[in-house]
Amino acid sequence: MRDETAPDTSIDTATLRRALDQAAEIVIGKPHALRLALTCLVANGHLLVEDVPGVGKTTLAQTLAKVLGLSLSRVQFTSDLLPADVLGVSIYEPDQHAFRFHPGPIFAQVVLADEVNRANPKSQSALLEAMEERQVTVDGKTHALPEPFFVIATQNPTEQIGTFPLPESQLDRFLMRIDVGYPSEQAELELLAGADRRQLLKQLQASLQPEQVLAAQAAARAVKTTPPLLQYVLDLVLTTRRHAKVKDGLSPRAGLALKRAAQAWALLDGRPGVLPEDVQAVFPAVVGHRLRSASEDGGASDLAQQILQQVAVP
């Protein structure tokens, strides 16, 4: 899908790292979350951020979009949100005696879907279907979404009243789920002392073209995965299926997601092939929301770490 006539489609790891460093100046003290978010984008997946409000989820999305030179739109999900509010609507134009499609906020390269669990299931599924299909069909007409297309959905895990938590099958649509978490003491001090993030964000220069993001996605797909590495991925997946503490094991789709994410992670390190460490780095983020713990105690992230420790690197 790459546009061959585009001005600059070359991509190298240095460029990507530079973008990452730039973003880190704004999103302080969260290099790992930032890198996972970029990895998710490069792997052509969508990101679910689960955390309490005010830790910088929105800033993260805005920074990422700005640094990569991508258009951003933000949808605040509420219980009265309609699918048309997300996708767009056809409106009758009296001058032209015809319906015209007014694209919704989803027609952006980076879509920030804030508090996605506040919306009713109908609007949720409109978003999730668009994420999967990468196109929108309204009134029988199909409209392709821009490329690259990257959805960052946020969820507030503590407030459960009046929310519609995403079902398991929908969670699977997100390549990764990350927790941003509170910044460290030092980072928070820096945050308090530093300039307003919004000002910084305005001054931020894009270090990449959208075409280069597409090129990065293609390059990630080309990162080599050798048989022993694939065996390692498979061993991890199979272990979740036999694991006493796991209710349902990982699906084959989850295995593919794990491989894609590890490829993108390796690309950010500039490696021609995926290492077991790359898989280990993305494993908790990729499988955390896909594993259901058999017992209610113990988070899924702990579970992911336990599984990593149990599987030998082949």
Binding site: L275, P276, E277, Q280, L308, Q309, Q310, V311, A312, V313
Partner: peptide, 8 residues
């Protein structure tokens, strides 16, 4: 360690 990757 068994679960340790080569680079680590």
């Amino acid at each position: 360690a068994a679960d340790e990757g080569p680079r680590d």
